[in-house]
Amino acid sequence: MSTPTQEVAEPASKIDLAEAGGSGGEIPSFDITLKVRRYDPERAEDAWWDEWTLTMYGTDRVLDALHKVKWEIDGSLTFRRSCAHGICGSDAMRINGRNRLACKALLKDLDTSKTITVEAIKGLPIEKDLIVDMEPFFQSYREIMPFLVNNSPEPTAERHQSPEDRERFDDTTKCILCAACTSSCPVFWTDGQYFGPAAIVNAHRFIFDSRDDAGDMRLEVLNDREGVWRCRTTFNCSDACPRGIEVTKAIQEVKTAILTRSL
């Protein structure tokens, strides 16, 4: 390395950007009215609604509107969010009456001429504002044994599986446990003991996994009075799933599996 090399600072962008100017790249902005159902047992016994008018941009999501309120207007507004990019599943909420992830619902896709209402997901106990107690939800999840059970001796390498066998349960591996499906289910609203779509989806993920040996046990768990037979195929769960899982179809496949097993 005797030849002296001249260090050149790397440019900020390797692509030649057009001179900024004109209105070509401008993001449209609009006013929205955001109405949030508030609940704080330390302040009032009953829930109440708060309304804010905000100027938001075409690239903003409902989560950005909530952030704007929390960071600039009312710091007491409480909600869960972690990754803010549709993976962690923390910010499922009822937006205009439908369960959505606040970080995936773009404001421009909603009717911005009307008030946008945001509530906590239904059916689980509200703790504060948009935060619910997820413990009953996770309890059902635990009961279906969401882990691989294999009775054969442990192999030295990985357990092999054909692409077709992997494809069989591919849809249900996408679940992020946001509870949007379970809390959109009208059966779960009145009957909190119902296992709920999310638990069944996660059972489906292992029941149809060729490497798993505990399918029968999971089917037995879901053959309960509060199991798959409580499903009324209203498709609310499939509509609510932010990951596009065909939830109702998965539940139906578990029903068929229980039925064929007992015949």
């Binding site: 106990p125 107690d133 413990e135 009953p136 309890q139 909190g192 003991q193 309960d224 509060e226």
Partner: peptide, 9 residues
């Protein structure tokens, strides 16, 4: 660790 009894099967 508490769960409302109405959720317990």
């Amino acid at each position: 660790g508490r769960i409302d009894p109405k959720y317990l099967r």
